[in-house]
């Protein structure tokens, strides 16, 4: 299998807090990799450290062999990293269509030069339409993002990621806070992406979902990897059971 992204010894400290402490991960082309872990395990922090929201304290991230550690978020997007947010971040004042279109311009945002290029060209609109149909946003395409429900906003996040033609898609808990019905829909969508042989990293709290869609799963606990393997393997790992059951005891 061809290696797409590799993380070696990634560290992310906040003062004395070691949110991520020496994390290794390899993502292969075309695979769906799940990262699971109890609350506060450092999953979202990991995403933020990879995507350039935070500058990692130590370690290395490479994309197709190229060192990209600590590259700012906007450059990561141009390089082919598309991430979604756990707490949806729609452009509220814009329509769903324009939300997707804004993301479609990923390579157009060059500064002053972007003033001289029209945003709503036929080519771009065709592409946006295609993604909107694919992600099931058609019926709300002309609604403002502030007027649609959470389920649509989550799909909007995925649509914005897809429209950038990403090499790697990072999904941050796409099902958090959704009803069972909406979770099923998002699951369908992820399976659809998987069929297209896209490379996906999925952070989830929802174990059945992760087990269903992922080829491999990495388990994160207190900033460290405690287990990695196929869903079947992970499910039966002692440490994983402890990490989860241990947490439930505290609840």
């Amino acid at each position: 299998m061809e290696e797409l992204m590799k993380i070696e010894g990634l560290k992310m400290y906040f003062g004395g807090l070691k949110a991520i402490d020496g994390f290794d991960l390899t993502v292969n082309k075309g695979e769906t990799l799940g990262i699971i872990g109890p609350n506060g395990a450092g999953k979202t922090t990991l995403f933020n450290a990879i995507c350039g929201v935070y500058k990692p304290t130590g370690g290395k991230v490479t994309l197709e062999g190229k060192d990209i550690t600590g590259t700012p978020a906007y450059k990561m997007a141009k390089m082919g990293f598309a991430r979604t947010f756990q707490i949806s971040k729609p452009l509220r004042g814009l329509t769903i269509f324009d939300n997707v279109l804004a993301a479609a311009g990923v390579h157009e945002y060059t500064g002053i030069g972007s003033y001289f290029h029209k945003s709503h060209t036929d080519d771009i609109e065709d592409k946006v339409e295609e993604i909107i149909l694919e992600t099931g946003l058609a019926e709300v395409a002309n609604k403002k993002a502030s007027d649609v429900s959470l389920g649509y906003l989550r799909r909007l996040e995925i649509a914005r990621a897809l429209v950038t033609d990403p090499k790697l898609i990072l999904l941050d808990e796409p099902c958090a806070g959704l009803s069972n019905f909406a979770i099923n829909e998002i699951t369908e969508l992820i399976l659809h992406l998987k069929e297209q042989k896209r490379s996906i990293v999925l952070i989830e709290h929802n174990l059945p979902l992760t087990m269903k869609v992922c080829d491999r799963i990495t388990v994160l606990s207190y900033g460290k990897k405690i287990c990695e393997g196929t869903p079947e393997y992970v499910k039966n790992d002692k440490q994983v059971i402890e990490a989860y059951l241990g947490e439930e005891d505290n609840d």
């Binding site: 978020a73 997007a77 804004a102």
Partner: peptide, 17 residues
């Protein structure tokens, strides 16, 4: 489009370049 994105949500704007 860039300004509109920033006005609405800077973090989202960064996430698409």
């Amino acid at each position: 489009m860039a300004l509109a994105s920033i006005e609405n949500d800077p973090a989202a704007a960064r996430s698409f370049g």
